[in-house]
């Protein structure tokens, strides 16, 4: 089964919960960090890496400017203004290119060739059974290059890598999704069996949970909510979940000692009653996903 942990608002505790779930989850599983802009899962799972790979996007390069007739077909086709025609030669802005390949197809004079833009890197490895984590935990993730704008193609490559790992050795998948409700978050929660939204009981937290439910919880995917820092603000999240028929699967209390432990990187399953809470959460997620996984 595939579980994705997401939230509209950032900093609600997605990675903290993904870490704990990954550590206590029974059986073989891959923890996948799809928050490639701010990847943090590896900080808490401390994996030994089996590999790293540069992730690239195919972009055009000007190979033969002298062959250009100045027809402007490439510039007219490019929806992103990544290639412009200046009189009798094209200029490419590779960082604006989405990699559609259209300019290479329309140029009849072989002016353009295939080049690469580095998106970042993807990495994979195993977390081992260090300090009390249950064994057979693998990790895959990606890290966007500084200055690179497009995270979605990198997220897709992380997903491909995770699929390869699963093909090699099947297991469950725990996805740490990027925050927000636009394309990166959506591409991370595609085709999952259960969605877990992490929210905090503040006006911002409530507003962004509403956005996340609208954007990510399509109705077809069973969805549950974890309230983090419960007791911090007001009762708004509970009321919202009740109204939208969303089960609250766990409530992590707002306590300074928990905040301090999390700041230091101590996983929740190291904290007495929170371990039990995470185990219950894992069971609830399996139950929620069951009709889908069985089908």
């Amino acid at each position: 089964m595939i579980v994705a942990i997401a939230s509209g608002k950032g900093g609600t505790g997605k990675t903290t919960i993904a870490t704990a779930l990954a550590r206590i989850w029974d059986g073989p599983r891959v923890a996948v960090d799809m928050d490639v802009e701010a990847p943090n899962l590896h900080l808490f799972l401390a994996p030994s890496y089996d590999g790293r790979k540069r992730a690239v996007l195919d972009v055009p390069v000007v190979l033969h400017p002298e062959a250009c007739s100045g027809c402007g077909a490439c510039s007219r086709l490019c929806a992103f203004k990544a290639i412009i025609a200046l009189g009798d030669y094209p200029v490419v802005f590779p960082e604006m290119c989405h990699g559609c390949g259209g300019c290479l197809e329309v140029c009849r004079r072989g002016v353009l060739g295939a080049g690469k833009r580095e998106l970042g890197e993807i990495f994979w490895g195993r977390a081992g059974a260090a300090d009390g984590a249950s064994p057979d935990l693998r990790i895959a993730g990606g890290q966007l290059r500084i200055g690179e704008a497009m995270s979605v193609p990198l997220i897709r490559q992380v997903r491909t890598k995770a699929n390869e790992m699963l093909a090699e050795h099947p297991g469950d998948v725990i996805i740490d999704a990027p925050p927000g409700t636009s394309c990166p978050a959506l591409s991370a929660v595609r085709e999952v069996d259960v969605l877990l939204l992490v929210a905090e009981p503040t006006p911002f937290g409530l507003h962004d949970l509403g956005l996340a439910v609208r954007a990510l919880a399509s109705g077809r995917v069973p969805t549950g909510v974890v309230v983090n820092r419960a007791g911090l603000g007001d009762d708004c999240i509970r009321a919202f979940c009740h109204k939208h028929d969303l089960p609250i699967l766990a409530e992590i209390p707002f306590r300074r000692d928990i905040a301090e432990a999390c700041a230091q990187g101590i996983p929740l399953d190291h904290m007495g009653e929170l371990r039990t809470m995470m185990e219950t959460l894992a069971r609830s997620l399996r139950e929620l996903a069951e009709p889908r996984v069985a089908a």
Binding site: E37, A149, S151, G180
Partner: peptide, 11 residues
């Protein structure tokens, strides 16, 4: 600004 370091942050 937005969180992260990607497209909207660069803009």
């Amino acid at each position: 600004g937005p969180p992260g370091i990607g497209c909207p942050v660069i803009s």
